[in-house]
Design a protein around this nucleic acid. Structure first.
Lengths: 113, 113
DNA sequence: TATAAATGCAAGCATTTGCTTGCGCAAGTA
DNA sequence: TACTTGCGCAAGCAAATGCTTGCATTTATA
C-alpha cells in the first residue's frame, strides 16, 4: 500500500511543498504544522508521513511531540534532473559541471578555505 | 475536469519524465514516442497532452503527424523552488558534482567531442 | 479512388490520492 | 489520580489518475 513514493511525487502536492517551506525555516511538531492549514491534523499527518518516507523530512520523538525538521538533500535529485535541461531555457547551461563547481566555490568562499 | 496541472505534477510521473527526456534530445511525433513505451498510444497521447497543457512541450501539426518538441523553460520554476533550499544539501555538493560529471561524460561519450 | 497511417475522442474501469470522522493511547499537567 | 494534549491508526468516500478498447477523422500513398 505504501508504495514508496519518490521525491518527484512528494513535491507534486502544494500542501506538501508548503509544509517543507514551513519546517525548512524552523522545525515544528505535527500540530503546529497542521495549525497552519485548513485541513485536518490527520491530513497533515499523512503528508508528513509521505515526506518522511522519501527522506525529505526527519521526524523525531520528543516527549509526546513529534518534531519535524527539513532534510532536503533529496532535492538534489530533482535539481540535477532539471539542470540537465537547463539549455532549454537558458543559454548559460552548456555544462552543468561549471554550474555546480561555481556553486560549491561560492559556498566554500563564505565559510572556509 | 482537466484542471490545468502544474509543472510539479507534470514531472511527477516517470513516464512523462521519460517522454521529456526523449524529445529533449530530438522532436518526435506521437507514434514514435509511444513506440518506446509499453502502454498504448492513447495513454502516451494523454501524457503528451498534459505536458503540452503546462507548456513543457510544444506540439505542431505537420501533415498527419503531430510533432512534439521540448520547450522546457517551465522547468525554471522548479529550479528556482529547489534552489531556495540548496543550503539543506549543499554539504553533499561534492557527490552532486561527481554525479553531474558522470552524466556529462556519459553524454559526451555517446555523441561527440 | 481505395487503403494505410497517425491521431483524437469517448466510455469504462481499477487504483491511487487526499480528506474526514471516530477511537485509542501515551506523555504531560492540575 | 483525573484531565488535557499530541498523535497515530483505521474505515469510509469522492475525485483524480492512468490505462484500455472501440470508433471516427484527416492525410498520405499505391
Amino acid at each position: 500500500m505504501k508504495a514508496r513514493r519518490d521525491v518527484y511525487q512528494a513535491i507534486a502536492d502544494p500542501t506538501r511543498r508548503a509544509i517543507i517551506n514551513m519546517i525548512a525555516a524552523q522545525p515544528h511538531n505535527v500540530n503546529a504544522i497542521a495549525a497552519n492549514f485548513d485541513v485536518t491534523r490527520q491530513a497533515i499527518s499523512l503528508h508528513i508521513q509521505i515526506l518522511a518516507d522519501c527522506g525529505l523530512i526527519n521526524v523525531k520523538q520528543q516527549g509526546r511531540d513529534r518534531v519535524c525538521e527539513a532534510r532536503l538533500d533529496q532535492l538534489g535529485e530533482i535539481s540535477v534532473w532539471v539542470d540537465q535541461y537547463r539549455q532549454h531555457w537558458e543559454n548559460k547551461l552548456d555544462n552543468l559541471e561549471k554550474y555546480v563547481v561555481n556553486l560549491k566555490n561560492e559556498r566554500n568562499g563564505k565559510q572556509s578555505k
